[in-house]
Design a protein around this nucleic acid. Structure first.
Lengths: 180, 180
DNA sequence: AGGTGCAGTGCAACGAGTTGCATAGGTACG
DNA sequence: CGTACCTATGCAACTCGTTGCACTGCACCT
């Protein structure tokens, strides 16, 4: 169980509706913990029933009503409990590796194209992260506490994308040499 | 759908039983596509029913009977079909990032210890990969075809672990400075 | 004599994530 | 005027992955 905790972290920073949370996941926390609105709604209801969060219905005009969720005492307690608990290391699960491993059973050329495509997508993501870094953390050495933590998480995303694109380059070069 | 394909790749390299496949996944292909024996048995049965693989029951003495699976024509066709198909980019989903982001809501010290623990685990995995590289691919520049592909996949694992441990070091240093 | 580990297959239940769809009013575009 | 997109919530069905357990029999250690 961890989507619960990702939502609790996000809601602690700022209260919000399920829809708003889904947007936030799309833009920031979801780079490291993706979630769809379906999952979020379901988990919010579960946490509401468990008393981890409370909600207030807000009528809006011109727009559908919304339920704004706030973290309750039990939710804060659960969050600190979870933060102190050991976490299983994340597993890497990448179909591209399987494809590369099986490349000689199909068309090496097509697999090469596929890797180029992935490289481009990850390079784009990398650019997004870098522009966030420039905009939100122009002077990293001055950061403290929560801001520092957020910056470090972003650094993780940047490093992961850098490393992935560098790997793609290595693969592309090696495949081109081997397969003229 | 991709466990199917990971199994097909592995079975194409060499026929084997569900148990043997589970061992292989533990040792090599599973570094990039983890699977338990339960998943493997289930998928093998499904693929058998679909005609993608065939099995032969082998009686052994001193040991339980086993079913050795081989890729059938339909399985080979499916594999080449899948290899030519575009693959969704893998998503990164790491609870450690969420924890770091929420660190200030609990004990920063405990999160720091957690990151040190993860660093150690990933450093161990990195050592495993490096020793595989030394043992199986001592001269990378001479590799071609399937061997080259396998080597490049391993390189991906090495790069990912290097990058992750370097990130941990950056985080540990920054947290220590910020939180004496 | 009893416990642990390995080889081998499998069931049952659960939890998490995905996908398609439904509803509903507002705005913006051609 | 129709179409498409945004806000906002939600159901239903499905697949995928995890966990715990069951049964068999040999080998090894204490």
């Amino acid at each position: 169980m961890a989507l619960e905790h990702a939502i609790l972290v996000s809601l602690t920073e700022r209260a919000g509706s399920g829809y708003e949370l889904a947007r936030r996941f799309d833009r920031s926390i979801g780079y490291f913990w993706p979630a769809t609105h379906q999952q979020i709604y379901r988990v919010l209801r579960r946490m509401d029933e468990a008393g981890w969060v409370t909600h207030t219905e807000i009528a809006q005009d011109g727009r559908p009503d919304k339920k704004v969720y706030r973290v309750a005492a039990a939710g804060r307690a659960e969050l600190t409990r979870w933060l102190a608990e050991p976490e299983d290391p994340a597993v890497l699960r990448d179909g591209l590796g399987v494809k590369l491993r099986g490349a000689s059973l199909g068309s090496v050329d097509l697999v090469l194209k596929e890797i180029e495509r992935h490289r481009a997508e990850h390079a784009t993501r990398l650019e997004v992260y870098r522009s966030i870094q420039k905009r939100d953390f122009p002077k990293p050495s001055t950061l403290h506490g929560r801001d520092l933590h957020q910056y470090l998480v972003l650094r993780g995303g940047i490093r992961a994308e850098e490393s992935f694109t560098a790997w793609c380059d290595e693969v592309i070069e090696a495949l081109r040499k081997d397969h003229p």
